[in-house]
Lab assay of single mutants.
Amino acid sequence: DAPDEFRDPLMDTLMTDPVRLPSGTIMDRSIILRHLLNSPTDPFNRQTLTESMLEPVPELKEQIQAWMR
């Protein structure tokens, strides 16, 4: 099983494109984008959230890719 820090906190699946929300939570980009289609909010604190506020986490993405090899 993947380490917890590699798993999306909402869907508990392996992240492939991790992004940091303004709240500091790291999620998979595809999952948070799907959530934003229904509700333009951070799913953990209900603060306003837009796609432009998502910050890529390239170092975590590299760690996940290395773990998958």
Rank of each mutant, 00 (worst) to 15 (best):
D1I: 14
D1N: 14
A2S: 09
P3Q: 04
D4A: 15
D4W: 15
D4M: 15
D4Y: 15
E5Q: 12
E5R: 14
E5V: 11
F6I: 03
F6R: 03
F6P: 14
R7Y: 12
D8R: 03
D8V: 03
D8N: 03
P9D: 05
P9R: 07
P9A: 12
P9N: 05
L10D: 02
M11T: 14
M11L: 10
D12N: 15
D12H: 15
D12M: 14
D12W: 15
T13E: 08
L14I: 14
L14V: 13
L14C: 08
M15G: 03
M15E: 00
M15V: 02
T16R: 13
T16H: 11
T16D: 09
D17T: 04
D17W: 06
P18V: 03
V19I: 06
V19Q: 03
V19M: 10
V19H: 04
R20D: 00
L21Q: 01
L21W: 03
L21R: 01
P22M: 03
P22F: 04
P22R: 03
P22K: 03
S23D: 06
S23V: 01
G24W: 04
G24V: 03
T25A: 13
T25Y: 15
I26W: 04
I26P: 00
M27Q: 00
M27D: 01
M27F: 06
D28H: 03
S30H: 13
S30Y: 12
I31D: 01
I32V: 09
I32K: 00
I32Q: 01
L33D: 02
R34P: 00
R34N: 11
R34Y: 10
H35D: 00
H35F: 12
H35Y: 12
L36H: 01
L37C: 10
L37F: 10
L37M: 14
L37I: 12
N38R: 13
N38P: 00
N38C: 13
S39F: 10
P40F: 10
P40W: 08
P40V: 07
T41K: 08
D42G: 02
D42T: 03
D42A: 02
P43S: 01
F44K: 02
F44V: 05
N45M: 07
N45G: 09
R46T: 09
R46V: 06
Q47C: 11
T48Q: 12
T48P: 15
T48M: 14
L49C: 06
L49W: 04
T50D: 13
E51H: 09
E51R: 09
S52N: 12
S52G: 12
S52L: 10
S52P: 08
S52A: 14
L54D: 01
L54A: 02
L54R: 01
E55S: 10
E55I: 15
P56A: 11
V57R: 04
V57W: 07
E59N: 09
E59C: 10
E59S: 11
L60C: 07
L60A: 00
K61C: 08
K61Y: 11
E62L: 13
Q63C: 10
Q63V: 10
Q63W: 09
I64N: 01
I64Y: 03
I64E: 01
I64F: 02
Q65K: 11
Q65E: 15
Q65P: 04
M68L: 15
R69E: 14
R69Q: 14
